[in-house]
Each structure stands twice: as C-alpha cells, then as structure tokens.
Design a protein around this nucleic acid. Structure first.
Lengths: 191, 191
DNA sequence: CTGCACATGTAACGTGTTACATGATTCG
DNA sequence: CGAATCATGTAACACGTTACATGTGCAG
C-alpha cells in the first residue's frame, strides 16, 4: 500500500468524524487540534483531490437548491484501510523542535548576561500566556454538560500541552536564577 | 536592514566561533546543537553564498600548498551588526510542534484502548532513550577538565532538552494509567 | 591501496505558507 | 445593505531534505 504524509492521514482521520468538507476540516483543526497540529487551505484542497484520485475517498456535491457550494467527502474502505494501517504503526522519533530561544541563548554567551536575562524573561511571559490559554480551554471542556468519551482524549492532548509549557517555564526560572548569580559574581554592569 | 531567516542567523552566529567553513559549521551543529537545531549541506552552502553576496561575510580560499580545498568565511562588521540586531530582538512564539503521537491518540479514540496503550508505551521508550543520551552527554561535559564559560551555556540548552523529555515521559505515565483504568472499567477485550 | 574523514557543491523533490481570486448566504 | 462567515480553489514563494557528483589527504 502506498505511503502518504502526515497531513494526508490527518485529513483521513478527520473524515471519520462528521467533518466532511475542506472548510469543516480547517475548522476542526483550528478549534480542536490547534495546540499540536496546523494546516492551511493550500494543503487541504490539493490533498483532498489526491485522496479522491487514489480512491481513498469519494466526493459528492451536496449543494442542493438554495444551498451554497459544498463538496462532501466520504472515506472508502480503501481509505479506512490506509488510515488503520497508519494508526497501527508506531510513531517515528518524538519531534525535535528547532528552538530559537536556545539558539539565541547559545550565541548570546558573548553578549552581556543582562541581555540573555531579558530574552528569557520575555520568553517566559509568552509561555505563561500559552499556559493560561490551555487552562481556559480545559475549564471550558470540564464545564460543558455532555461528557462524551471523546472528551477524555481531548483532555489527554491538552494535558500534554500544559505539561510541556510548565516544564519550559520551570526551565526559564531555573536558568534565570543561574544567570542572575552569574551576573552578581562577575560584577558585570551592562548598559 | 534586510531580514534573514533563522538558518542564516544560525550560520552568522557560528561564524563568530572558530568554525569558519561550511564543513566545520555542519560539524558544530551536529555535535553541539543537535538536540535543538539541525541543518543540511543543501542549506549551508547556498546560504554562505548569499551571506557573502550581501556583504555580511568575506571568503578566503585557505587551501595552501598540499592542503585540501577550504573556504574560510569571516564576518564583516555589517554581518556582526545583522547578528547583533537579531540577537537583540525578542524571539517569536515558542515553537508549536506538530506532534504525531497526539494525532494518533486523538484519532485512535475509536480504535481499541489497547491499541492506544501500545502506541504510548512505544513512544515512552523512545523518550527514555533520548533522555539517556542527554544524560550521557551531560556527564561527558561535566567530567572534562577545562571549564570555560561556554560550558555553562551548553548546559543550559541541554537542561532544556532533559526537562522536555522528562515532562513528556511523565505525561506518558499519567496517560497510560488513565487508559488502563478505562480499559478495566469498560471490561474491553481487544484482539 | 583501501577506506575513512575532510571538503564543496547542486538538482530534484517534498512540504508548507501566503496572498490572491471568487462567490454565496446569513444576520443585524 | 453591509459585514461576517461559509466555501473552494490556485500560484508564487520559502524552506528543508535527499541523493548525487566530485575530489583530496591520511592512517592502517
């Protein structure tokens, strides 16, 4: 069986929910998977086309009388099979993120310590904002009436985001402390 | 002043160390920044060319008699300035990694719980391997004689990697526990 | 003399973003 | 009626990887 990229499987996966159009796919990702997956229309529509060409899904123009344009996609059994196969394979390496703050910190070792402290403090602020967003989303989920089983899985992924943010914040704190004691020790006065 | 991409600044930054050729840049990144930055020759050589074209660095063919090919690059003051400017700007958003395991976990909610458990267990193993690598590198650094100031900055970035890995491992443990209790509760017997 | 590390480079490809073009429907 | 949202799509660009091509110097 032919291999596809992650984007294709993500779309295949979403087609198993009741999101069945390009627009709806974008909505779902932006609203629900936003903290660990992103996608643009520039990927969605061409990918949907390829999916249909390869017989993994079928399209149906569901823009009836007075309705607006809408292409409804439905997975074929071949599509189901491809998705199932991907799902059953172990994931490849955990993502190795390119991290701009680490790069600047590394090259900033010959700049003033004060400078590194500013960078880190700003970064920490951004992480705290992100964490706050996750907390708000979590509350929203916990407070809603209907607790479908999907909710559990939703919370798993959100928990991941929270832990990652918290760990980064801890690292900022610890590193800031080290930088501060370094500055005192050096008796460095930066402009 | 013209803006460049992160790759360009990374190279500019490395040129401030005593790595002055394309090959040496690749070496440094692979050996020292590997856990948060990667680069390929397909990026390095064209980027070095652009850097020279824009007057941020100068090349010198240092392949003297009997020596092999070697292009030595040196930052110009314009290059220093560009690097300094980038270094002084706050970083943009903390990286939002695309995470395959979360995607599979999310779509696996209609597969068997057992299946999700397998995926997560495998993933945790990979994280543990990575953590072990970091530990080994750390020991290597701590045990070496000369403790230049660079070592501190080296350890900062390594510490980040360790914390990120640990947080992910914790999340795996917690999530596995929840999945196990879910499976018991459902009394589900998967094939 | 063979294999490895040193050393430089390009072309094709895969992937993803951005900006643009276009138009319908709904709600205030 | 005007704005927002629904809805689909493409072209140009930016970025990065991989595979390939080519050759030198040194150690065993």
């Amino acid at each position: 069986m032919k291999m596809y990229n992650h984007t294709t499987y993500a779309i295949l996966g979403i087609l198993t929910t009741n999101c069945r159009s390009g627009y709806a796919i974008k909505q779902l990702i932006d609203r629900s998977l936003n903290h660990f997956w992103k996608i643009s229309y520039g990927q969605i529509y061409p990918t949907l086309k390829r999916i249909v060409d390869d017989g993994l899904a079928e399209v149906r123009d569901s823009s009836g009388e007075g309705k607006r344009d809408k292409q409804e996609y439905t997975l074929t059994s071949k599509g189901m099979e491809a998705l199932g196969k991907w799902l059953s394979e172990p994931v490849d390496q955990p993502p190795l993120e390119k991290n701009e703050i680490l790069l600047k910190l590394f090259f900033g070792r010959h700049q003033s310590t004060d400078h590194s402290i500013k960078l880190l403090t700003d970064y920490k602020g951004k992480l705290q904002e992100r964490l706050a967003t996750y907390m708000t989303i979590e509350e929203g989920i916990l407070n809603q009436e209907e607790r479908s089983e999907d909710v559990d899985y939703w919370l798993f992924t959100l928990d991941y985001g929270k832990r990652a943010a918290l760990a980064s914040i801890d690292w900022c704190d610890e590193t800031l402390e080290k930088l501060n004691s370094k500055e005192e020790h050096d008796g460095q006065t930066s402009v």
